[in-house]
């Protein structure tokens, strides 16, 4: 397959003359309708002054002595380490690396899928700490948040309940009446600051079929303060061999 031919193939496409004329005509009409030309330069100084005032009012983070933007909240990622202990890492511009813990779920779950993508299930959970925070909203650019859940045999028999809760059965302990499963939370969720411990939502990230993360993922973290102000930080998720790394973008 010669990809260089793609250039010639695509460049052979031309906009039909009828469309070109229509686009020009419509654009000209728009120009005539603009009776008072708008000059953005006139408004730059006014806009700047308003922006500065707004930033002061909403308490926008200002650069510290080193020129870094100081945020008013800290994001901590944690997961189980190989020896079973919890590994806590405050996220920064340095990479925080977590080993991929996929064995427990690999091959067992086929129901949870991100569109056409397969998912790598990690044990990484996010938590925010800061002052006067009301709620936190996490949004994944690709993939889903999921939660490990347990349920009884009676609940398992209620297929409609499982479906409505988006719970997918994973396994059952031998001789036990307790089932383990995965609850699909979605690509975004909002949690109250004081209720973070109640929600153990982990990251499920799409892979290319060979357990390689298809592309870098961005997690948007928006914090809403009790005063109504909001602040945002973005986390970049990348793959490092059999680990994933999280850095503030």
């Amino acid at each position: 397959m010669d990809f260089d031919k793609m250039k010639d193939a695509v460049k052979s496409i031309e906009m039909p003359e009828t469309i070109k004329s229509r686009v020009k005509k419509n654009s000209n009409l728009l120009e005539k309708e603009k009776s008072v030309p708008f000059s953005p330069k006139k408004w730059i100084s006014v806009a700047c002054a308003i922006a500065v005032l707004l930033l002061i009012i909403i308490g926008f983070p200002l650069p510290d002595r080193n020129g870094n933007i100081a945020s008013n909240f800290t994001i901590t990622a944690y997961a189980s380490s190989v020896d079973g202990n919890q590994l806590y890492k405050n996220l920064s511009e340095e990479k925080a690396i977590f080993e991929l813990a996929t064995e427990q779920r690999m091959g067992l779950i086929t129901s949870v899928a991100d569109g056409e993508n397969n998912l790598i299930f990690t044990d990484v959970i996010l938590k925010v700490t800061g002052e006067q925070i009301e709620s936190i909203t996490y949004t994944l650019s690709e993939g889903k948040f999921i939660e490990d859940v347990i349920f009884t045999a009676k609940e398992r028999a209620d297929k409609e309940w499982l479906l409505s809760e988006k719970i997918y059965m994973m396994s059952r302990e031998p001789g036990s009446d307790v089932y383990q499963g995965i609850k699909e939370v979605g690509n975004t969720y909002t949690v109250n600051y004081n209720e973070q411990e109640k929600h153990k939502y982990t990251l499920a990230i799409p892979h290319d079929g060979n357990y390689v993360i298809d592309e870098d993922i961005v997690i948007q973290v928006i914090v809403k303060y009790t005063g109504g102000n909001m602040e945002q930080q973005n986390i970049l998720v990348t793959q490092e061999s059999d680990s994933i790394s999280l850095t503030l973008k």
Binding site: K5, M6, D8, A9, V10, S12, I13, E14, M15, P16
Partner: peptide, 11 residues
């Protein structure tokens, strides 16, 4: 849109 017949498949 394209006059090049050979390009159709690739497109």
């Amino acid at each position: 849109y394209s006059k090049d017949v050979e390009s159709y498949g690739l497109l």
